[in-house]
Each structure stands twice: as structure tokens, then as C-alpha cells.
Amino acid sequence: MKPCLLLLLAFTLPLRAEVQQQLEQTPYIAWGTSQPTLGAVLRSATPITYGGQRFIGYTRWDINWRFFWYQRGNGRCQIRHPLTRLNAQMTLPDLRGGNSQIHAQFDQYLRALKRHEMGHYAIAQAAANAIDERLQTLPEQVDCSTLQRVANEQAQGILEHYRQQEFDYDLQTGHGISQGAVLPD
């Protein structure tokens, strides 16, 4: 009798799962001997353009969510198992060639730039966790189509909130300048 009770509980209690995360780091090569300064080297080498601007580093992220629900006999519906996935790609320069002075400047700059880009990733992680938490705690709805609509609307609203946070983060840090990501020219 106990195994049947456990099986019944498995189908009626929400399942808790962590957000699946993947961060891919993609370098691009910048040749240290191609320009006279580190700033010129990195600006000429970057393949990153966004919104008509060129950037030395960039973190792109996407969050996808799915969920399984349980429908009661009365038609009411509740999420039982959300699946939230964060995929991110961080693109940073990889300096090749050049003298020891340009490498010292690059190492200092790259540490600050990576710290800034990790801030973008931290915002993405917070967004994914907030979406997952909201899906796990969403109250039962009158039917499954309402549940699906409400869950997706709320997750999309959370996503938009964190996209705005990311925009504000760049404004507050000057795209990393206040964190030390300043290119010497």
C-alpha cells in the first residue's frame, strides 16, 4: 500500500527542478601587431555589432521554458513540472602576437571586461531563476488553456523586466568602464 501512496504523491505534488544552464565562451582573435595601440587592435578585430555599435565583448542569452500540468477532474489545471533553460554565449577577444606591454594591458582589460560580461550572465541567471520560481508557484487556474496563457504571460513579463535590468546595468557601468574595462589608446 505504501508504494501506491508514494506513486500517487509523485503525480500530485509539484516537482522541483533547477534551471538548466549553459554558458559558452567564444573567443575571437585579435592580432597585437596589427595596430599601434591595444584599443585600436581590439576595435579593428571585433566582429561584434549590436544596435549599430561595435563592442569588444558581448554576452547574448536566451531563456526557454516549458511546463507539464496536471488537470483535475473538475477541469482546473496546475503546473507540475517546469523546465527552464538558460543558454548564453560570451564573446571575448583573444590577443595573439604583440609585445609584453600590450599583453599586460590586455590582461588587465580582459579581467575587467570579463567581470562586466559575467554581470550580464548573472542578470540572465536571475531571470531564469525568477521564471522557474514563478512557474513552480503559479496558482491553479480554471482550465489548462488559461494556465498556459497566464504562465507564458508572466514568464514573458519577468523576461522583459530582466532585459530592462540588463540595459540599466550597461548604462550604470558605461558598458563596463566604471568596472575598469577601459581601453588604453
Rank of each mutant, 00 (worst) to 15 (best):
T84C: 11
F106R: 06
R54T: 05
L5F: 14
H116R: 14
E153G: 06
Q22D: 10
G180Q: 08
P14W: 05
S44M: 13
L171F: 13
Q136N: 02
R85Y: 15
D143V: 14
L13T: 04
R72G: 15
G73R: 06
L15E: 00
R163H: 05
R72Q: 11
Q165R: 15
N99V: 05
T146H: 11
L13E: 07
A104Q: 14
N87T: 09
G157L: 06
C4W: 15
Q53E: 09
W69C: 04
Q21R: 09
Q156M: 07
R80F: 06
D62V: 13
T91I: 10
F11P: 11
Y50C: 00
R72A: 09
P82D: 03
L183F: 10
G73M: 06
V182N: 02
P27K: 04
P27C: 08
E140H: 15
E133H: 05
Q71E: 13
R60V: 03
Q20K: 09
L5H: 12
G119N: 06
R66V: 15
Q105L: 10
P36M: 14
P36C: 01
T46A: 03
E133V: 12
L110K: 08
S44R: 10
Q21H: 10
S145K: 04
Q108E: 06
G174R: 08
R54D: 03
L8Q: 07
Q53L: 01
G119I: 01
A127Q: 03
W69R: 10
L92V: 08
Q53R: 03
R66H: 07
T37L: 13
Y162D: 01
N74C: 02
W31H: 14
R80N: 11
H161E: 13
V150H: 13
Y169H: 10
P139S: 06
Q53N: 14
I177R: 14
G39N: 12
A130S: 06
F67I: 00
D107I: 06
A30K: 02
N87G: 13
G57L: 15
L42I: 00
I131L: 06
G174D: 05
Q148D: 12
C4P: 15
G73T: 04
D168Y: 12
R85A: 12
R76I: 08
D170C: 07
R43Q: 06
Q179C: 00
